[in-house]
Amino acid sequence: METACFELSGFDAVYDEYFDMVYRICYVYFHGHTADAEDAAQTVFMHYLEAGVIPETNEHTKAWLIVTAQNVCKTMLRRHHRKDTELDAASDKGAAFEYNEVMDAVMRLPENERMAVYLNLYEGYTAAETAKLMKCRENTVYSYIHRARKKLKKELGG
């Protein structure tokens, strides 16, 4: 049936729809270093084009992008460390963002807690879905969010 197999309308649509999401994930991974996040986001969409694999629905495309973005960021972070090169200077960190305080607090969370907060609280994935995307147990997602909330409340004065 036509309805069950959503046909993608092209790279532009996917790019427009999901670029911000991919960028946010990379931003979360790179502690708010915008230039690194941009590089990573670009790499994710490059993989998307090269892979030639078109997931069957929008939701699958989105999930594919989330998982790929995480992998790309992890690889890039590893590379950074191996070469012992500095990440982008912290000067552009959070520039021009109104919610610096909140974002800074989020950036101080461990990587997994950051990602869980982003996927679950912002993207609206359930804990089960977040667990699949993060390749961890659902329990773990709950405790990441639980811990993150607690730390954030403390940091943001509540």
């Binding site: 960028y23 946010r24 915008t34 996040a37 941009e38 963002f97 919610y99 974002m103 907060v117």
Partner: peptide, 12 residues
């Protein structure tokens, strides 16, 4: 809500 607003502002 604070987090949502903060993430909303993360945009290239």
């Amino acid at each position: 809500q604070k987090l949502t607003a903060a993430f909303d502002n993360v945009r290239a």
